[in-house]
Design a protein around this nucleic acid. Sequence first.
DNA 1: GGCGGGCGTCGAAGCGCTTCGATTTCGCAA
DNA 2: TTGCGAAATCGAAGCGCTTCGACGCCCGCC
Lengths: 337, 337
Amino acid sequence: MVTIADVARHAGVSPSTVSYVLSGKRAISAATRERVAASIKALGYHPHAGARALASSRANVIALVVPLRTDMHVPILLQIAMAIVTAARGHDHDVLLLTNDEGTEGLHRVARSALVDAVIVMDVELHDPRAPVLRELGLPSVLIGFPADPAGLTCVDLDFSAAAGLCVDHLADLGHTGVALIGPPAGVLERGTGFARRTLSGFEEAAARRGLRTLVRPCETAHEAAWATAKELRTEHPEITGLVVHNEPTVPPLLEALRGLDVTVPGDLSIVAMGPQDLSAAVSPRLTMVPIPAEEMGRRAVELLMGKLNGDDRVPGSTLMAPRLMAGDSTAPPPPR
Amino acid sequence: MVTIADVARHAGVSPSTVSYVLSGKRAISAATRERVAASIKALGYHPHAGARALASSRANVIALVVPLRTDMHVPILLQIAMAIVTAARGHDHDVLLLTNDEGTEGLHRVARSALVDAVIVMDVELHDPRAPVLRELGLPSVLIGFPADPAGLTCVDLDFSAAAGLCVDHLADLGHTGVALIGPPAGVLERGTGFARRTLSGFEEAAARRGLRTLVRPCETAHEAAWATAKELRTEHPEITGLVVHNEPTVPPLLEALRGLDVTVPGDLSIVAMGPQDLSAAVSPRLTMVPIPAEEMGRRAVELLMGKLNGDDRVPGSTLMAPRLMAGDSTAPPPPR
DNA sequence: GGCGGGCGTCGAAGCGCTTCGATTTCGCAA
DNA sequence: TTGCGAAATCGAAGCGCTTCGACGCCCGCC
């Protein structure tokens, strides 16, 4: 193993000088700096992570807690996780992967053992048991999603209320007067993931503002449920000409059911969905949608965390990311009556 | 922070004794052991990970390299990753998440800095640039998937050849005499992911052994491609009554296309798929399939790695996991002619 | 010409743990 | 009672790094 002493000897300086070159915490003359840099390269030196952590009480590692069982779309989860790793590397940090099967004990462990110096928690529920633990540990943290009581915590999420509003406005602008929200299965709402409620209220509010008639349907993912929903829409609610679907896996079977019922999209019915961006291209017609900005969420979470790590106490407690609507081919003016 | 000295004082022993209680590397009397354990609990002591790594030159962390761009089904990827984390925790190790956007440099970095003491690499390609790096670093490692030249490396994967054989045998047992392999898009084969070829050869071999007529079709995921494939099968290859689908995302559109063409499954056509287990229940009819044992693969990879970490040099270089066929409702004897 | 003050560098003291030899203790045979 | 080996415990030396105070040097100023 190459140590800092080896580098120092090679460059003809003291170990502390090498350390200062590396950290930039003291002024070093350009000449020395370059000589040391050359020695580092020549010897292929990498500081020993453990020694560094011990001496500086900074591990330069953050923990990422990923749920085992999730309400989120799995590919999105991975996208966010990857974005977090990439962003963390950009700030010279690595990412330790934690699951929930150790329970909150895992959080205690990595924090108390100084394995990590900050935490990002994904897929937060309304009454998430991890929230109080984070408060208690007093370790910098960022949650992706909002618990019921976010006091004292830093949270990031898509502004689902605004997203639903964007969908409604888009349909209203096209001339639709009756819109439905096809939400996630009823269970999700009850289990207490905040975003479902926020979507709902944003939907209702925007519809009221635009004077639209509304309908709200949870919908299971299964094939049959999609058909039932499609049929009900056509027979019992002909006034509904625009759909806001906030339930990604339902989209393909729903489209199939509509096709089966000879309902054309967007001729007879317009659809705008909220979900992972890649869904748009995966179905036909190409979906108009409000994508979940996974990459951006991950990046932002890391930026907030780094702010807290650097002792910046102006880090906002709540960050709602602005949604954008991506036009596709699944929305058009309603059919003439 | 609670240190080992605090625990020692509290228990009335020396720090080294506490260390030996923790590691079990020397005999400690039951009385002392219990007293120390009580002190540890009372003070909530967790050893400082960095200090431990420094002194013992063992970080008790393994790196998991996850591809950014993947040929694997994403949920499977995550399942394997989670299984790895869980299994690693079972061996008192944590998992550091690495992406490939640092290139192989990231591997160098975490290895040379002693951040991790072993590596698991996922989604290995035939000419994977990480393979030579792993050999060179001389750090215990396990690959999930096989490179073209696995010499000197430890690899784990599903036995895709046997899996394809299992599918063919199942169809042959039911009386089918003409079977087709619906494989991944052509690009995948060329890009050099070994499993596609192994599936192909297993398929051909088993079919030859059973005297079946065969057809091999790559198939894109898109809706249109699925329809085209379905139509071609019915019009040009009526002798084909059994399908082996090794291309998970194609299954739903393919089923839809067949339904659209009034081909019943399994009445007119039997389908057996290789892919993530959860696919089976997600479509109708419930699929007969050879699931990819994500959980088991992750666990096995960790076990092999721990073997290498403990200096066990009987760790096999190659581990092919035996496939199992799960009967569903998508296969039946072929229709009478 | 002397002196104060940066700037650049060094030396040494830990950070908390493991580990190895040394030391103590104990049980038991002589 | 003494001696001896095994069992149990201790003390101290690092592991490789950061950091803080100290030091030397050179420059500019009076």
